[in-house]
């Protein structure tokens, strides 16, 4: 399948969720599934991060960068600052040959 076709399919599964929600204003979801939907971003994003860090050949550099980046976001609440801080830490370690 071409990349463009995959992108169209990504759109085809994203738009209906948005549209459906706007049309279901009077419907009540069971608490279990409301909680499930609330936890999905946390579980998926965590699942995206960890293999990219620990499964990488340069995992130690990435782990250090993640610690610095994570702490920066936690203290500052600023996403861009966290990315820059983590990236800077990564380069410090890489330049020093770690």
């Amino acid at each position: 399948m071409t990349i463009a076709a995959v992108i169209v399919l990504m759109w085809a599964v994203t738009y209906p969720a948005r549209w459906l929600g706007l049309n279901l204003g009077r419907v009540k979801l069971p608490p279990f599934w409301l909680a499930f939907l609330n936890f999905v971003p946390v579980s998926v994003i965590a699942a995206l991060i960890v293999p990219e860090v620990l499964g990488s050949p340069e995992w130690l550099r990435r782990l250090l960068a993640s610690v610095v980046g994570g702490l920066t976001v936690w203290r500052s609440g600023n996403l861009a600052l966290g990315i820059l801080g983590g990236f800077a830490a990564y380069w410090v370690v890489r330049t020093l040959g770690g």
Binding site: F39, P41, V42, S43, V44, I45, A46, A47, L48, I49, V50, E52, V53, S56, E58, R61, R62, A65, S66, G69, G70, V73, W74, G77, L79, A80, G82, I83, G86, F87, Y90
Partner: peptide, 29 residues
């Protein structure tokens, strides 16, 4: 390559309120 996990970490950290969320994040990861 390191920007990918860093950007997601920046999204995840503000979501980690309470022990249950942290546990879910840790076990999923």
């Amino acid at each position: 390559g390191v920007i990918f996990p860093l950007a997601f970490l920046g999204l995840l950290v503000p979501m980690l309120r309470g022990r249950m969320t942290m546990l879910v994040a840790l076990l999923s990861g």
